[in-house]
Amino acid sequence: MNIFRLAGDMTHLASVLVLLLKIHTIKSCAGISLKTQELYALVFATRYLDLFTDYISLYNTLMKLIFLVSSFSIVWYIRHHKIVRRSYDKDQDTFRHYFLVLPCFLLALVINEKFTVKEIMWTFSLYLEAVAILPQLVLLQRTRNIDNLTGQYVFLLGAYRSLYILNWIYRYFTEPHYVHWITWISGLVQTLLYADFFYYYFQSWKNNVKLELPA
């Protein structure tokens, strides 16, 4: 474990907590894409298949449980909670996210580190996570006024993977044979997708104006 990865995990945890805070306290999911939340629940479900088979550390197991429980409960809140579901804007959240699942799965069948069920599911979860933010970014461009919590949520979600890139660089130089091209490339693609969001987020923070993404 290195400082970049710990910071990355904490940033990821913070993004989930910000979202849960928003949904649980103000009972609203305005501006949040249910599709992205569903994709993230699928990412964790397919990545943490080894939750009960390979014990790595208490920290690892605990964080996996937190991410699994929080992502599924966020999906439940938006879909079934009698108050929260009313603020879900399904007419705007129209990204065909199922079109992301199949290509990621096919790609995982073709490009993976080992052709086993667990490894293919793990690789699938990496590719899917790289594109999971797309419905949310599209929704942000449609909803004119982005509230602070939503902006912070997306920012933290993008920042965590950027910190992971620093972690991979650190591990590459400090651990022999630590080479995971698949992880690195999908992590880089994921971070690049946030590039323009980061730009507008930084501009709104610098000029102290409301965050707005150009349509």
Binding site: D9, H12, D50, K64, F67, E113, K114, W122, T183
Partner: peptide, 10 residues
């Protein structure tokens, strides 16, 4: 040697 793919990251 079976390179046990050790996914120790989240």
């Amino acid at each position: 040697l079976e390179t046990f793919l050790y996914h120790d990251e989240l």
